[in-house]
């Protein structure tokens, strides 16, 4: 997995609530058996018209946001389907960090498995960052995972919280499966005990 340490990039504002994973990547594009290549279809229905032409008013189609690496969005981001194609598409587009007042549970977890940092902050703070993002390409934000800070284009520093284990894995680019397999003996012992207690499982 890609490491995530620091990021300085353009933030795109998407002030909508309940952005669901069907919007992020419509099911049409779930028929792939690969993880890569989904970026062109990120937000497909909002981004392109019925003939496949870009809608000029969609934020990621605007010249100043085409290279956005950060997304600032409304409450409950990533709700709906568990499809990991959503963070795959986001990552493939080049976005590495999403800031919102809250995230849906499965989506939030999926981000960390794909080198993407989701940051949940109080509504007022997100409003402030949304405004900053509205300034366009000149307004770059700095994200520092180690220090757990966001620095706005005006130099204001905002602290965020992140689970210590998830932070560690993201900083080091660690593979969860490898880490768990190191605990194989513990799992074996648990399994032996559990299957004695619950032999029907």
């Amino acid at each position: 997995m890609d490491k995530f340490e620091k990021l300085t990039g353009i933030a795109a504002p998407m002030p909508m609530i309940n952005i669901d994973t069907d919007m992020i990547i419509p099911k049409l594009f779930l028929k792939t058996i690969k993880r890569s290549g989904l970026g062109v279809n990120l937000f497909d229905e909002m981004r392109y018209d019925d003939d496949g032409n870009e809608r000029p008013d969609f934020v990621l189609n605007k010249p100043q946001y085409r290279d956005a690496e950060i997304l600032v969005a409304g409450d409950n981001f990533g709700c709906g389907s568990s499809r990991e194609h959503a963070p795959w598409a986001i990552g493939d587009f080049g976005i590495r960090c999403i800031i919102a007042p809250s995230f849906a549970d499965i989506f939030y977890n999926n981000c960390f498995k794909n080198g993407i940092l989701p940051i949940a902050l109080p509504q007022e703070t997100v409003d402030l960052l949304m405004k900053d993002a509205g300034k366009g390409a000149n307004a770059r934000m700095d994200i520092d995972l180690e220090a757990q800070t966001i620095t706005t284009s005006d130099g204001e520093v905002i602290r965020f919280e992140v689970d210590a284990f998830k932070k560690h894995c993201l900083l080091e680019g660690l593979d969860d499966i490898g880490l768990t397999l190191e605990k194989a003996a513990t799992v074996d012992a648990f399994e032996a005990k559990a299957s004695a207690e619950r032999p029907w499982v």
Binding site: G80, S82, I106
Partner: peptide, 29 residues
Amino acid sequence: GDSHTATHGAFGSLAHGIGTSEVEHVLAT
């Protein structure tokens, strides 16, 4: 790997959806 796994909770089982990386994690571990 499907959010409506919650359905199985009707039996008093702890059931929930997971992403594909987690599917791989469960398959392996």
